[in-house]
């Protein structure tokens, strides 16, 4: 482990230590926040009782569907639009301002149309993630030097073969940025949706605990989500670094 990682770890430990002290000494009232150590203990109890697992299954299921959809559809649309420069230029302003639209206002509408089930949540996660994938697919394909398409033609490769055997592998490190964002954004989308209005899942469990003044459960679940998402993002990041190092880009 290098020095930077150690310092970083120190900063994080110090942060939670400070919170712990502030909570223990009553500077932060127990009605506002419970000490991190108690969150951890409570979380352990929730994990043992199986309550976390139930919520997690639903949340992770929805996130997985939303993000796989976003990645495949985002790549297909990105590749298609890339092949049509005129359409692409016309779409560009919409893509760059897309995230200015606060998407969650559509969520109540989706619930209204499709009912209170997993579908609206998946839709929100998907809508939130797909454009990040499209944008990064376009960027990735842009970065392929022209000479690679010449090489493809020298090998008598058609459009589909070129896309599959040359463009895709060349663009993968860049596409991976899109995949990373798609994962993070589907998490944000699904959990926010659960939070606002849902039949179950981790986000719902937190808002339910909030409504019932159950601070212990609420903070334990918050801690769980933060840790879970951080671990997932870190693993993706580590994998990306390996990919980049091998190809030296």
């Amino acid at each position: 482990m290098n020095r930077l990682t150690l310092i970083r770890l120190g900063v994080i430990v110090a942060f939670f230590g400070l919170l712990e002290i502030l909570c223990r000494t009553g500077v932060i009232s127990p009605f506002t926040m419970i000490p991190p150590s108690e969150m951890a203990i409570e979380l352990w109890a929730l994990i043992v009782s199986g309550e976390v697992a139930r919520g997690m299954r639903q949340t992770l299921g929805n996130v997985a569907v939303a993000c796989i959809l976003a990645i495949t559809v985002g790549f297909a649309v990105g590749a298609g639009v890339h092949a049509l420069p005129r359409l692409r230029r016309a779409l560009d302003p919409f893509l760059t301002t897309y995230y200015a639209v606060p998407f969650f206002v559509f969520y109540p509408l989706l619930v209204f149309i499709f009912g209170m089930n997993n579908f609206p949540m998946i839709m929100i996660g998907f809508l939130f993630a797909v454009v990040a994938m499209i944008i990064n697919t376009l960027n990735g394909l842009d970065k392929i030097p022209r000479v690679y398409r010449k090489v493809a033609r020298m090998h008598h490769m058609g459009r589909a073969k070129t896309a599959l055997l040359i463009e895709l592998p060349y663009a993968i490190p860049n596409l991976f940025t899109g995949v990373k964002l798609a994962v993070a954004y589907s998490f944000i989308g699904v959990i926010a949706a659960e939070f606002i209005l849902a039949p179950g899942g981790l986000g719902y469990a937190i808002s339910f605990a909030y409504d019932n003044f159950d601070n212990e459960t609420m903070y334990a679940l918050m801690l769980f989500i933060l840790v879970l998402v951080t671990i997932i993002n870190m693993s993706l990041h580590a994998y990306e670094q390996r990919l980049l190092r091998r190809q030296g880009r």
Binding site: F187, I188, A192, F195, G203, I206, L226, V229, N233
Partner: peptide
């Protein structure tokens, strides 16, 4: 940046 910050809203 990539955390679902909504979970912090009750806080």
């Amino acid at each position: 940046y990539s955390l679902p910050k909504i979970t912090l809203y009750p806080l």
